[in-house]
């Protein structure tokens, strides 16, 4: 067994991270500033909206895209959150989740298209996605902190790493599942690459892509407590503090709030996948 000396993956990683930090530190800083600005503004906006109005908006959304029952659930659930004094934390979490998901969509859908269109890209991307999904979050939490400091930005990056793979995978799958005859249809009428993509492939892949985005939202929510460990506040922060202080009741309340938000977001995004235009 001991044919080779110990392979120093640990030291290589350290050196690599250090090198990246020295070489690209400035770039990471400005990216970090930009992301922070975006997330904080969104947070401020969500908190600025009066809770009553916000509950009304979300309930109307649920009514429009799902049904009355979902709207009723939204009103009761959100009022409960307000009632136990977790409104601010919930809006912080919502801002985090929305920001991460938007990032995942902006990066993930083009990568998914690339993977669907090029076998080489597919072969490169797939193992990276496996890596992203299975590497324990705590392992990349630390490098995220070294690059982006503490707070919402490393939390968003960590969430991105964990939650983006389904968007890429399901975009790839959705485009590959477009029936051969419809692809031939596009070609036989002289479609360009863009026409093919936007008029045929993406519309037909939409339900699958929406399933990917739905998964992405769920995974982002499941990251809120881990994010809290590196300084993101919100509901995760409440849970984390309750755990540290052994306040079981407070922890449960914050956990319940996460579940309410998760169910609402899940049902609404699922309905986007089903509704025809």
């Amino acid at each position: 067994m001991d044919l080779l000396p110990r392979i120093p993956i640990n030291r290589w990683t350290d050196i690599g991270i250090e090198y990246l930090q020295i070489k690209w530190g400035g770039g990471f800083d400005s990216l970090s500033e930009f992301l922070k600005g975006f997330i904080i503004s969104l947070q401020d906006l969500l908190i600025f909206i009066p809770p009553a109005l916000m509950i009304l908006i979300l309930a109307l959304l649920a009514w429009r895209f799902i049904n009355k029952k979902a709207a009723l659930f939204g009103i009761i659930g959100l009022y409960l959150i307000y009632n136990v004094g977790l409104w601010g934390a919930t809006m912080q979490t919502l801002a985090m989740v929305i920001s991460s998901v938007v990032l995942c969509i902006i990066l993930g859908i083009p990568l998914g298209i690339l993977a669907a269109k090029s076998d080489t890209a597919h072969q490169i991307i797939t193992p990276i996605l496996d890596f992203m999904q299975t590497l324990p979050a705590f392992v990349y939490l630390l490098p995220a902190v070294t690059f982006f400091g503490l707070g919402v930005v490393p939390a968003a990056i960590a969430t991105l790493i964990f939650a983006m793979p389904p968007v890429i995978r399901l975009t790839d799958l959705g485009i590959k599942q477009v029936p051969e005859e419809l692809v031939e249809l596009g070609h036989s009428f002289g479609s360009t690459f863009h026409q093919m993509l936007f008029k045929i492939e993406l519309p037909l892949a939409r339900p699958t892509i929406m399933a990917g985005i739905n998964q992405c939202i769920m995974l982002s929510l499941s990251m809120v407590v881990i994010s809290a460990m590196i300084g993101a506040k919100g509901l995760g922060g409440e849970v984390w503090r309750a755990i540290q202080r052994m306040e079981i009741g407070n922890g449960f309340e914050a956990g319940l709030a996460i579940v309410v938000i998760a169910i609402l977001l899940d049902r609404i995004t699922q309905s986007f996948g089903k509704n025809e235009d």
Binding site: P179, E181, E184, L185, F189, T192, K199, I200, L204, D277
Partner: peptide, 29 residues
Amino acid sequence: RTKMSMVFQRFALLPHRNVRDNVAYGLEV
């Protein structure tokens, strides 16, 4: 686009477009 067009065995209609917009596909392209 202009000289020839194809009719398919399993029709190959786009399910997300209505009949008129399906017929207009070639013109749209």
